[in-house]
Amino acid sequence: MSVANRSSSSPSQLKSAEPVVALHEINRHFQLGEQTVKALDAVSLELLAGDYVSVMGPSGSGKSTLLNILGLLDRPDAGAYLLNGAPTQDLSEEKRARLRQQNIGFVFQSYHLIPRMSARENIELPLILAGTAPKERARMVSEMLERLGLTARASHLPNQLSGGQRQRVAIGRAIIMKPKLLLADEPTGNLDTQSGADVVTLLEELNTQGITLVVVTHDVELGKRARRQLRMVDGRIQSDLRQSDVSD
């Protein structure tokens, strides 16, 4: 797998177009017994096409909630979320599912592969849900397997794959629909160092090709690789550092 040099900020990423994601004053509160937990407290955030953002912070700081809101899995209690300039907060559940399908890819710590489906079928799943024609699907999945270096493993079930391979399958599944936004929740959390490094390389390569990458992580090393680093505390964005500000 060829690796683009992560530190080179290619020109394509610098040109700032319309933001892919715009959050305005997002509130998300949970009721825990008597107590109201402000998981997100008036969070505003813009992500541009090609951004590489890491979200860090202590447990309970609202990282996951932010990711869920960004992924249209959760609805804010207040505030506006514009995806590609279009407001999403009032859309029906089925329309949000459609938006997710077309625009957002998810990568999870625990892969979330379907155990009875082969690597190929797991990658194919979003295309099936979207109703893509079988011929088209086969071509796209084969290309993807090739790109991920998994062609030889295409017919293996998840439990016949190594952790790194599983996460690569999961990434293949996340990007098969060519989303603009890729959300990764601790993508290396379950992996050994080498596999983790491979996965990060793959994610960054995708980012270089233009995908907006958001990585939520506890791993400081991983977090520091992003050109833009958000730190969250108590449901607020405490700091928002850009690569140029960071002394690496």
Binding site: E94, R98, R100, Q102, I114, L125, P126
Partner: peptide, 9 residues
């Protein structure tokens, strides 16, 4: 997962 992948209800 299916829902995250865009499966509707």
């Amino acid at each position: 997962l299916l829902r995250a992948l865009g499966a509707t209800r």
